[in-house]
């Protein structure tokens, strides 16, 4: 059972502390496990401190997302052998990510939030940010993908020729 009034203090990797409702942290598998491992007495409702390996700026974004999604159903529906689509990101989430687009360090922010969602085991946020990244490379040419992902071609000429041959059916 989750006690929504219970507050949890999260200590970030850069030393900041943020206190949030248990109603938000219940979406994080990592924080829930940390609280459970502390064997917290439900009646005492203590201020549990959980150290999270995420910096303060990123944690604020994570909390903003969790606040919007606090009423999402749990457990998060796992999809395995099904078609996965990236065009179903909810409008609020799209606007949330677009706010970063105005920043110069947009890609670093996306990277930081993906990594934080993975570390904190927040499946909904992880899926949303991974879809956002997938949408950045969807429909791009090989050269455009290489530019977006900032990758050098490390194939030999023979390997490259083989890959071109394999990809021929999906190129115009």
């Amino acid at each position: 059972r989750i006690y929504p009034l219970m507050r949890v203090t999260l200590t970030t990797s850069d030393g900041a502390s943020v206190t949030v409702s248990r109603q938000l942290t219940k979406h994080s598998g990592f924080i829930e496990k940390a609280i459970t491992d502390m064997a917290v007495d439900d009646n005492a409702v203590p201020l549990s401190a959980v150290a999270v390996d995420v910096d303060d700026a990123t944690l604020k974004l994570v909390i903003e997302w969790l606040t919007e999604h606090r009423d999402d159903a749990l457990p998060y529906p796992e999809k395995t052998d099904e078609e996965r689509r990236a065009d179903d990101i909810p409008a609020w989430d799209q606007a949330f990510v677009q706010k970063w687009d105005t920043k110069e360090d947009q890609q670093q922010t996306l990277y930081a939030v993906i990594t934080a969602a993975d570390k904190l085991d927040i499946k909904g946020l992880l899926d949303m940010t991974c879809k956002t990244l997938a949408n950045k490379i969807n429909g791009k040419t090989v050269e455009e993908m290489r530019e977006i992902l900032q990758l050098e071609c490390d194939f030999t000429e023979e390997e490259l020729a083989e890959i071109r041959k394999e990809n021929a059916w999906c190129e115009n």
Partner: peptide, 13 residues
């Protein structure tokens, strides 16, 4: 989350 064509093209290294 990519289409099969994009996944094949994404093998850039």
């Amino acid at each position: 989350f990519l289409s099969m064509e994009d996944r094949l093209r994404a093998r850039v290294n």
